[in-house]
Design a protein around this nucleic acid. Structure first.
Length: 502
RNA sequence: GGCGCAUUCGUCUAGCGGCCAAGGACAUCGCCCUCUCAAGGCGGAGAUCACGGGUUCGAAUCCCGUAUGCGCCA
């Protein structure tokens, strides 16, 4: 590899950080880190119409959340000054595009066009009707003299600048690392607009000018950009610049194989964060969307990814975003976390407002972190996302839920022996010297034999009595965490309820 | 409509001419473990490698065509 790899992630601040874009960022970032190169963030904000307030902030936050740091790019949301090739906001580099356009104008590789949208529509319609491929007919290049064009510009007439595609060339080929050589006929490409009438460049121009100025060595972007690449190659040729290496990565699709979009579910990286996914898991999962190392390894730390990521292993076909597999992987990562680490990640999810999935609002915040530390082992292997925690641990913070006393009677048990069991357990627990799960369990065991019941019948009854639920973490650890008072009162009300019912 | 890319189990993929009558993982099913729920272990089912032609002693792997899907432009 060349000594200094320089790659860039070039988001438009027009919306949420789409996982497709974040995956592109990840591949670029991994490539840079693998080769010891630079990762540059450049903000492509020339489309003022589509600019969305706060979008850039979310995009940068996503990168940071997933541990992708950049060597050059924005310092904050508006300060594009980190690095020697700035500014890194395209809206602050307009003069460079203007100068570049003037160079091509002077060389005759570009020309000024005054055609109105109405005329263009008419032209296209005629072409379509004649079953010919639509494309600009070079009206302003062929029908107008240079002097005419200049005088109309001087008169202040609205105009755009078009790139003159070298139709005389037999072919233009794009060398793509992933797909090999892809060839186009220049005749089939039309003279695209590179400068709009408002003085803003189009994507094509700005992109090439910046990639060249920023000394980008590898352009890695989604496959949807492949069709515009021949135009870019032609631009590089017109400027006399060496193009970067291109690599078009497979797209991320929804379950209907169409480009992943909002109607397929969560598409923003920050949504996954809010839904309780770990950045480690998302990173690992996304890396595997279009890339793989071998036939058996699939769990990769960020460090592993950096070590192994190469373009040779990037696939060609689009990949469906399988949220189920992501969820499985997230569970795996949760189980691998240390208890203190997990506890601190869980805390904000429990402390969210109730309406957003947190504990009931009458539970005091912040939560006691020692208590949470004690509860964490009980959830660790029972949740797949951090957001699942409320469902599992809620019972430790709420009053016992109302339940039908019939729930106390387990399969194969009777009201009578269940009452006896509960009374026996209550008596034992009341006499307990210490409140330790293992000791409490040892007290219950003989009772089970004595009553000739199955362990599950007794345990199940106790579970419902102390939690109000049929499902909970392991019983005696739960009872220990619940505390003596809560356990005893649960047992008492259970006995009372059952007795009253019979 | 034009151009381009892609096509291996439902899904993510391994495979770069013989090791493949195709391997792993998710999901699914069954069994084991077990106080519930999980987690974990074991096992099953699941792909005529889109289809049709070539090339070759030999093709999932190379070439051509067709189909389908997707993308871009309009």
């Amino acid at each position: 590899m060349p000594d200094t790899v320089r790659v860039r992630f070039a988001p438009s601040p027009t919306g949420e950080p789409h996982v497709g874009n974040i995956r592109t960022a990840l591949f670029n970032w991994l490539f840079a880190r693998h080769h010891g190169g630079s990762f540059i963030v450049r903000v492509e904000d020339t489309d003022q119409e589509r600019k969305v307030e706060g979008a850039l902030k979310s995009i940068l936050a996503s990168l940071k959340w997933m541990g992708m740091d950049w060597d050059e790019g924005p310092e904050g949301d508006t300060d594009g000054s980190r690095g020697p090739h700035g500014p890194y906001f395209q809206s602050q580099r307009l003069h460079m595009y203007k100068e570049a356009a003037d160079v091509l104008l002077a060389k005759g590789d570009a020309y000024i066009c005054f055609c109105t949208p109405e005329r263009l529509d008419q032209m296209r319609k005629a072409q379509t009707d004649a079953k010919r491929p639509p494309g600009y007919d070079r009206h302003c290049l062929l029908e107008l003299t240079a002097e005419e064009r200049q005088s109309r510009v001087d008169a202040g007439e609205e105009h755009v600048i078009r790139f003159r595609i070298p139709w005389e060339l037999p072919e233009v080929v794009v060398h793509d690392v992933i797909r090999g050589d892809v060839t186009w006929e220049p005749k089939l490409l039309d003279d695209f607009v590179m400068m709009k009438s408002d003085g803003f460049p189009t994507y094509h121009l700005a992109n090439i000018v910046d990639d060249h100025a920023m000394e980008i060595t590898h352009v890695m972007r989604a496959e949807e950009w492949l069709p515009s690449t021949p135009r870019h190659v032609l631009l590089y040729q017109a400027f006399g610049w060496t193009p970067p290496v291109f690599a078009h990565m497979p797209m991320i699709l929804g379950d209907d194989r169409a480009k992943l979009s909002k109607r397929h579910g969560a598409t923003s990286a920050l949504e996954y964060k809010a839904n309780g996914y770990l950045p480690e898991a998302l990173t690992n999962f996304m890396a595997l969307l279009g890339w793989s190392l071998d036939d058996h390894t699939e769990i990769f730390s960020q460090e592993d990814l950096i070590k192994h990521f190469t373009l040779e292993h990037v696939g060609k076909a689009g990949a469906i975003f399988d949220a189920e597999k992501l969820t499985w992987m997230n569970g795996l990562y949760i189980r691998a976390l240390s208890i203190p680490d997990l506890a601190s990640r869980l805390q904000p999810f429990l402390e969210r407002p109730q309406a957003e999935g947190g504990l009931p609002d009458d539970v005091a915040r912040p939560l006691d972190s020692d208590f949470l530390l004690q509860l964490t082992p009980l959830v660790q292997e029972r949740i797949k996302t951090l957001a699942d925690v409320t469902g599992v641990l809620g019972l430790f913070f709420e009053d016992i839920a109302d339940y039908d006393s019939a729930m106390l009677i387990q399969k194969g048990a009777t009201a009578d022996n269940t009452i006896s069991a509960l009374k026996g357990v209550l008596k034992q627990f009341e006499s307990a010297k210490t409140w330790d799960g293992a000791e409490l369990e040892a007290m219950v065991k003989p009772l089970v034999d004595e009553l000739e019941m199955k362990p599950g019948q007794v345990f199940g009854a106790i579970r419902v009595a102390v939690t109000g639920r049929a499902v909970s973490p392991p019983l005696f650890e739960t009872i220990q965490a619940l505390g003596r008072e809560r356990a005893l009162s649960g047992l008492r009300s259970a006995v009372a309820a059952l007795t009253a019912a019979t």
